[in-house]
């Protein structure tokens, strides 16, 4: 057997098979559809705005808030400590979504103004195998109506309610402080709280 012919036949037929396959690198949801459905619509896939407020005031380092709105809105106002991935760039190669899930103890919470973008993003991220994805129920609209406009109306306050309102008040204060800063300082704050995804390097010869 002439080795040239052997290689030609082998490689030629493998090449033919490959020519019919989808390009590698295009993302594809890998979870089982039924499991993914159950996981993404159950309650544990959500965080309420009050839970997020608690994370914010305690500066919880096991949580990463991801703002899915466009950069202009993000610059104007955002929850302190969040980073910005515009929703339509979520699957871009440059976004490198995976790097935000590198630390498997960190919970990544998506939020937008409402429930649409965070819902889509949650399904995409969980479908791609990032089980640590969550969404903030109600989005920024809910954040404003619950946390920013919180006011206690009633006669007596229970200890539990007291704690809740204290968290809301502190989150509101923090939110107002950070978002009232001039743009340049806001940018500095955002950069400090974001991180550089580690890049694999290599080469040869």
């Amino acid at each position: 057997m002439n080795p040239r012919i052997v290689f030609s036949i082998l490689l030629g037929s493998f090449g033919l098979i490959l020519a019919f396959l989808p390009s590698p690198g295009t993302a594809r949801l890998t979870e089982n559809p039924k499991t993914l459905l159950y996981q993404s619509i159950e309650k544990s896939a959500y965080f309420s705005v009050d839970q997020v407020a608690r994370f914010v005031v305690s500066e919880d380092s096991t949580v990463l808030l991801v703002d899915l709105r466009n950069p202009i809105d993000f610059k104007q106002v955002s929850i302190p400590g969040s980073i910005n991935i515009p929703y339509n760039q979520l699957l871009n190669k440059e976004t490198n979504l995976e790097s935000y899930f590198a630390d498997n103890k960190k919970r990544v919470i998506f939020y937008s103004n409402g429930d649409l973008y965070s819902g889509y993003a949650l399904v995409l991220a969980r479908g791609l195998g990032f089980a640590n994805s969550y969404s903030m129920k109600g989005g920024l609209n809910e954040w404003f109506s619950t946390v920013m406009n919180s006011a206690f109306t009633g006669d007596r306050i229970s200890a539990r309610e007291n704690a809740l309102f204290e968290t809301r008040t502190r989150a509101k204060k923090y939110f107002t402080e950070i978002n009232s800063l001039p743009d340049s300082l806001k940018l500095q704050f955002a950069q400090k709280s974001s991180f550089d995804p580690k890049k694999l390097d290599g080469g040869c010869e």
């Binding site: 989808p22 594809r28 949801l29 890998t30 979870e31 973008y117 479908g127």
Partner: peptide, 21 residues
């Protein structure tokens, strides 16, 4: 492999495109 894959199409970006706009 291609027949028993999860049931989702490849190129998630393309199938999500309508939600971007």
């Amino acid at each position: 492999k291609s027949l028993t894959s999860s049931g989702f199409k490849s190129d998630a970006d393309k199938w999500a495109a309508a939600s971007f706009s």
